[in-house]
Design a protein around this nucleic acid. Structure first.
Ligand SMILES: [Mn+2]
Ligand SMILES: [Mn+2]
Ligand SMILES: [Mn+2]
Ligand SMILES: [Mn+2]
Lengths: 234, 234
DNA sequence: ACCCGGTTTTAGGTATGCCTAAACTATTAG
DNA sequence: CTAATAGTTTAGGCATACCTAAAACCGGGT
């Protein structure tokens, strides 16, 4: 009983495009389609590791399917329908990451690659069962919010980039917002995972000196943009 | 660390062809490449729900990859390399079925469709973790043997088709060897699942009268070919 | 020996999703 | 206000995996 899904059957590539358009067009904290910005061909090409010409082709196809609004030279935005699909894929992704971590003992930094593929291939029954097993979690192991079954994206606690903390300030890692495997490996290695405490010791030209898991490190600025921290007692 | 796998990266379609060549070419009990028979274009076309012309095309490609031996008009057999791939896919499939059943509470008859897709998309890490979680099971929920991590197919206990039992004989369902969803639903509904007791009451022209789960049914002959039974006390 | 009918292959075509190279557009720096 | 350049699109290709229609094959029966 396939419930003849209300959404068309999309390819893996199409689903990934929609998901990335959502991710790239959203403010780091933000949710809701209205607060979304247009995404350029170039950004998508970089993120999808594909040539810009390929992106143009795909965007035309998605526009025909009424999943995006696309005007040449002006970037794309999701339509209401496209937004739904993107959230659905994102839900699969983040539930899978959580399940791999909690049920199968995957490392925090290992889950992304596996989820990136599986998100396109699990059924709604599978989604439902792992969500139940997990007790309907609100956040994945990276601290990212998981869209609900009704496709609402929960608001998070207010956070600031690690880069924005003053010297001497401390906080709790709330989110490590990276898709890059090497960066994740590094963070995992340093103990900079969601829930951990961090303190900014000093801002330097080459990066930010921090203390995490009892050790001191110099983090390149780019990496301190990726880590979001919440109030210590929050 | 992808360990740069010894086998080439194959498409989902290629993997499914190899698996079906293995399944169609093996005796119902049999294992080992030697005891395998050639498989015809037609059989594959039926099984894969594809036209014979498509099969011919695929077989040529697989032959180029040295995964099958293919001679026009004479059917295919797997090469040693193709046999390995087929067993690998089969291991994924049957481990997944077992996991979906035991860990996620899928019904015995629901697992096939989900496994059919996922088998191509899980990593070796995933395979390993579910195998460990399950305690390295030897058989899947349908009673089919699961290839080991070293890709050996365990021998089963000797079984006979339900159709082969004499009137009055009883046995334990050892295996329900169907890929057909509707047949599986029916068997599940009747309580004819691996481990259940069955008794053949009478052979009729229209089918076989059996008792299972306390009830009496008339099973079409075709369906009694699919069910394998072992000695009651075996 | 030959014919027939089922099986299999060939030939030619579709759609997807990617590529490169070349042409074009929009924006920004002078 | 133009001209360079970064960003984008078009045009033309390739590979995969299917399809249909037509031709070729093969084995059994006469
Ligand atoms: Mn993906
Ligand atoms: Mn879903
Ligand atoms: Mn499959
Ligand atoms: Mn494997």
């Amino acid at each position: 009983m396939n419930t003849s899904l209300s959404r068309p059957v999309l390819s893996e590539a199409q689903e990934d495009y929609l998901k990335q358009i959502l991710l790239l067009g959203s403010a780091p904290e933000g949710s809701s389609l209205e607060h979304t910005t247009a995404v350029s061909t170039q950004e998508l090409a970089d993120r999808m590791e594909v040539k810009p010409a390929s992106v143009t082709g795909m965007l035309k196809k998605l526009a025909e399917l009424a999943l995006v609004e696309y005007e040449a030279y002006k970037g794309v935005r999701l339509t209401e329908a496209g937004y739904k699909v993107a959230l659905e894929v994102l839900r699969h992704h983040r539930l899978l990451e959580t399940y791999l971590h909690q049920a199968l003992g995957y490392g925090w930094e290992e889950v992304h690659a596996e989820a990136e593929r599986l998100e396109h291939h699990i059924s709604e029954a599978f989604e439902k069962r792992i969500a139940e097993w997990l007790g309907h979690p609100s956040h994945d192991p990276h601290g990212d919010p998981i869209p609900t079954a009704e496709l609402h994206l929960p608001e998070g606690v207010p956070t600031r980039r690690l880069a924005a903390l003053e010297a001497g300030e401390r906080g709790l890692v709330a989110r490590v917002g990276s898709q890059d495997q090497d960066a994740l490996n590094l963070f995992a290695h340093l103990g900079l995972r969601p829930g951990a405490q961090v303190e900014v010791l000093e801002h330097m030209p080459e990066g930010v000196r921090v203390r995490a898991a009892g050790e001191r490190y110099l983090l390149p600025v780019a990496l301190t943009q990726i880590v979001w921290v919440a109030e210590v007692g929050g």
